[in-house]
Design a binder for these strands. Structure first.
Lengths: 328, 328
DNA sequence: CATAAAATGATGAACGTTCCTCATTTTATG
DNA sequence: CATAAAATGAGGAACGTTCATCATTTTATG
């Protein structure tokens, strides 16, 4: 039997009779054979290409993600694995177009995407996956689409954690407020529900009031928030406006409420230093980018399907004391 | 010019006249040459071997580290890089012996070690490094030894973070206690000083009392701690006895003080769930193990010296709400 | 300046796969 | 059962390095 035959079996490229296939596989098992990666990558002639589809927004977060991706790729160069990062505006239409062009171009062997909520994306992912085009989701899931695997956080848990923190950072009185905005995406709903779930389980919470920002008239609604927040002991900002809310809180007279939110940017970092923001809940974007690359690499280059359908990344608590590790 | 000549230059294996060396390097620069890793690993015949010297203790922590190491190695198999993990008892003598045998055996191309405090280890590391035997430190540093690079936490910062948390988790009154034990290692001193530094900077702290456990008569000293802690609002356990102290705190009547410490094990995990331990400060052992392997790999296999002398890993805050991501 | 030693240069065989090409055997079809 | 088509098998070149070996040139030494 020639190496070529064996290779055909190992890559199930067909053209080998079942009896031989068995013989090869059995022998491989017996000898505890594992292909040598160096040789394999070296001999492989064609590039494997993967497209990463990311929203442009919010900038700082995706920049960090991108660093994680690039960083993971550094370890992998020379192995014939290539990724293109495609940024789309934050509209569904734009993302759909990008995805279509990726699939139709037939230039890619797979895709990793942070999909917008809703049917259109689910549908196209589903049909691509059924068509044997592997897709991984990222940061925002689309479980019904049949994507191979998801990398990202559990936002319900994130909301619960926010509740846990709000409770720990406050004293006797626990009058809480949640702030969301109009978009009220799936992620935001999950966070809110998690926070509420915590307050119900906990029992010590006096009340939770829900405030919604209006993106059209941001100034007005922030003003309203400020007025509504004077009798509150902790505020949980579930939307992306943590820094803006912090600006308002900073203006409050007297004892300031505990302020908790998500993610980190330059403004939030400074509010942490000033103890206006007590804590912010982060996911390590670097790690996330890294993991997504590895999943795609393992699948496409090493024939290793993802071990789990969900790769839930950890939620990290960032305060003044450890912020510098998270913001560089 | 033959590939062999070029190769000699690229691996500065000598035997090439300076003019040629220059010519080659210049051309390489000009062509933006980077060696192909697959081909390089494949053609390389000899194994590179690295010894990891770890204390056996505390078990759970080093088990996690080991997982991180093994995990990093999985991505690297077939590349001719091999590591042996050597565990030593917690005595200096034992560690010295292990290190000597590693160096004398001449079977290794490098070493990663979590060195015990003190002159003996510093000395031997220094002489080995001067002798062109690369050594990386890990979890516990030995900067004067001239090790190539350190991977681990900044324990002074860890103490400060503990102070920050203690302050945030308490209300009006801030009467704190620090608990250490007899060993009072460098790490523990750093943590203590960091905590104290925070309390001084902060200004709001009423007092900090220092309690020292006696390892010989643990029961007695825990008993003593319990009595000394009734008038305290927050306790910071800087030594490894967080779970034991938590057991004592659990028995206290009335309002329990905030309890903060380091690391995670099964007992601490349960005390977090019960809200006896409010928060514990962790370093990701998985990541640490991973990073140490990569540093050694980059240095020995890719000729990439570590970018930084200190690879300070982040300090992570673990509470009931996110403990599950840290304990599996 | 003869000679040995050191320095430098060229050659080509590995490393363990992948995959193309061609030869041979089996199977399907009338 | 003849023939074409499909299935299977064997052989060997290529991937881009590393490194041992041998050939040649330069340098040191008396």
């Amino acid at each position: 039997m020639s190496p070529a035959t064996v290779d055909r079996v190992l890559h199930n490229r067909g053209g080998v009779k079942p009896k031989t296939v068995d013989r090869v596989l059995q022998k491989a098992e017996e000898l505890n054979y594992t292909p040598n990666k160096s040789a394999s990558f070296l001999a492989r002639k064609k590039l494997v290409k993967v497209a990463f589809v990311l929203p442009e927004y919010p900038e700082y977060f995706w920049k960090e993600i991108e660093k994680g991706i690039v960083n993971a790729l550094e370890d992998i160069t020379d192995y014939g694995f290539h990724v293109d990062i495609k940024k789309t505006s934050n509209t569904i239409a734009d993302q759909l177009e990008t995805v279509h062009s990726i699939i139709d171009s037939e230039a890619y062997d797979g895709m990793v995407i942070c999909p917008k909520d809703g049917i259109p994306l689910t549908t196209i992912i589903e049909s691509a996956v059924n068509n044997n085009f592997p897709i991984f989701t990222f940061n925002n899931d689309s479980p019904e689409s049949g994507r191979l695997s998801y990398v990202g956080a559990d936002y319900f848990e994130a909301g619960k954690l926010a509740g846990d923190l709000a409770s720990k950072f406050t004293g006797e009185r626990k009058r809480f407020a949640i702030i969301t905005d109009e978009a009220d995406t799936y992620q935001m709903k999950q966070k809110r529900q998690g926070f509420e779930a915590f307050t119900i389980e906990d029992g010590d919470v006096d009340f939770v009031k829900l405030l919604r920002l209006n993106n059209q008239s941001m100034e007005d609604s922030l003003e309203r928030v400020r007025q509504n927040v004077e009798d509150v002991d902790a505020i949980y900002v579930a939307c992306g406006a943590l820094a803006e809310v912090a600006d308002q809180v900073k203006q409050l007279e007297g004892k300031k409420p505990v302020l908790i939110g998500h993610d980190l940017n330059d403004d939030v970092y400074h509010h942490l230093q000033d103890n206006i923001v007590t804590a912010t809940i982060c996911q390590d974007p670097h790690y996330q980018g890294n993991l997504a690359v590895r999943l795609a690499f393992n699948y496409l280059m090493l024939d290793k399907p993802p071990e789990k359908e969900d790769n839930i990344v950890k939620l990290e608590i960032v305060t003044r004391g450890n912020a510098k590790y998270y913001w560089s």
